[in-house]
Simulated assay, not measured.
Amino acid sequence: MKKAAIAVTLTASIFTLTACNSGEGDSEVVAETNAGNITKDDFYQELKDRYGESVLRELVTVEVLNDKYDVSDKQIDKEVQNVKDQLGDQFQSVLQRQGFKDEQAFRKMLKLSLLQEEAVAEDMDISKKELKEKYERMKTEVKAKHILVDKKEKAK
């Protein structure tokens, strides 16, 4: 039922985005070149054609998750602080290398991630006992020994 509602919402949103393309073009020039100018309308249309569906899907997903689940600013602050504690002075440079323009963009991604975790965990009831049993089953014991020899050929 949930998947059907999301699919219907997503489909309706895509049709709406497609219908929003008006016949009147915006001739404001956003880039000038010797070969010709790029108008705002040309730029928008190209972005919509290339990335419109994925951006729209992300926006709808965020709206649906925000409507159904709650993630507090305290939870986000805690996650940001954990990352800052791990990275120390490297925090800002790591954000930039990962493609975040600033900490706010990182916080936005964290919120989406936490909302997705809430959605996945919604129907899961796992007791501490079950979790411990699963951990014990997955735990492996490794026994390693070093054999020292004086020549490389002998080791091979």
Rank of each mutant, 00 (worst) to 15 (best):
E58R: 14
V29Y: 03
D125R: 07
E130F: 06
G23A: 10
K143Y: 01
L148T: 07
T11L: 12
D77P: 00
A121W: 11
L59W: 11
E46R: 13
K139I: 00
K151T: 01
I14Y: 06
D123M: 04
L87S: 04
Q75E: 03
M124R: 07
V142K: 10
T33R: 14
N21F: 15
D41R: 00
K108F: 10
Y44G: 02
V60W: 01
M138C: 02
V149W: 08
D49E: 12
F100N: 02
V83T: 08
L112W: 13
E28S: 11
R107Q: 00
L56K: 09
L110I: 01
Y69G: 02
R137V: 00
A5P: 10
L131W: 05
K145W: 06
S27G: 12
V64M: 05
T11A: 14
S113F: 13
L56Y: 10
K154M: 05
F43A: 03
Y51Q: 04
K151M: 00
E58S: 09
D73Q: 08
D49I: 06
L112S: 08
D125N: 09
T18M: 15
E32P: 07
G25C: 15
K134D: 04
E32Y: 15
S27T: 08
E79N: 11
K145T: 01
R97A: 14
K152A: 00
I14W: 05
Q81L: 14
R57G: 05
R57K: 07
E63T: 13
E32M: 13
L47F: 10
T61F: 12
K111R: 09
T11Q: 14
M109A: 13
M124C: 07
A155V: 10
K129I: 00
Q96D: 10
Q86M: 10
K74E: 08
N66C: 03
A144Y: 04
V142L: 09
H146Q: 11
N82Q: 09
K152S: 02
A119I: 06
D49H: 15
N66F: 08
E136W: 08
E136A: 09
N82I: 12
D49F: 13
K101A: 06
K139D: 01
E28T: 11
E103F: 06
S127N: 09
Q92F: 14
H146S: 12
N34G: 08
V64I: 08
L47W: 11
D42V: 13
S54A: 12
K108P: 04
A31V: 12
Q92I: 02
E58P: 04
V94T: 01
M1V: 14
K154C: 00
E24R: 15
V62I: 11
L10R: 09
M138L: 07
E118Y: 02
M124Q: 09
F91H: 03
E32W: 14
V64R: 06
K3C: 14
K108S: 05
T39H: 10
D102E: 06
R50K: 09
Q86G: 06
A121I: 03
Y135L: 05
E32T: 12
A4R: 14
F106G: 00
G36F: 05
D85W: 15
D123F: 08
